[in-house]
Design a protein around this nucleic acid. Sequence first.
DNA 1: GCGACCTGCTTGCAATAGTTAGCAGCTTGC
DNA 2: GCAAGCTGCTAACTATTGCAAGCAGGTCGC
Lengths: 121, 121
Amino acid sequence: MNESKHGDLGTFIRQQRERANLSLRRLADKADISNPYLSQIERGIRKPSAEILKSLSRALEISANSLYKRAGLIDEELAPTSVFEAIGADERLDTEQKKVLLDMYRALSRINGTVTTEKQE
Amino acid sequence: MNESKHGDLGTFIRQQRERANLSLRRLADKADISNPYLSQIERGIRKPSAEILKSLSRALEISANSLYKRAGLIDEELAPTSVFEAIGADERLDTEQKKVLLDMYRALSRINGTVTTEKQE
DNA sequence: GCGACCTGCTTGCAATAGTTAGCAGCTTGC
DNA sequence: GCAAGCTGCTAACTATTGCAAGCAGGTCGC
């Protein structure tokens, strides 16, 4: 009955996987699920349980929350957390690297037009 | 992977139900699930899917998040938000731009010594 | 006593989540 | 050519979820 909702989830997962440069099998391995099943999830054929989602969130290094939200399992808004904030808080980057990345981000989002990205910090 | 965490979940749900002064049937009704199934969940015999949990959280008027945490489906605290995730969730960037930015991020953090994602050769 | 109404629990059964084995296609090297 | 190595997908299966139907026990008024 809810196919479109979960189709969207699958697409999201596939996008995240591709961004992480992982093949279907590699992600499946990392998340301890079978690769055909992951394939079916991404195409919206199967609807993963929350445990599977949790594994996937860990394997993809994104918060379980954002995945659940995408899956329609959480309605509430919780962590809007901007890219600015996230970069600023990242411990792996030094100050200069943060600056580079932020410049990049600003440039990209400006190219894309549509928005008033005045918010800078 | 997560075996014993669910006994605790059932107890928690039963506590919440009793706190709300609802009978098993009334809560089941409210959450649109069958009463035998709710019974089994509360006794830890069955392990509810996230959709069921969501229904229950609404019926019990508690946040989905607290239930998921109780169910062991969320480990993290609520604002770990990685750069990875923030970029992925950003609506100002299109897919290609996200990829670029993430590549950049990976490269930078790799230089710095810590590795974010698995190797990709 | 006996229905009518609750309470929570047990028992099959249908639907579907998740698995293993294997297929087709596309590169890269011999 | 063709074997070895990936890529994602299909098919056939098992395991588990979630259900409808019904059971045992309690409490009420009659």
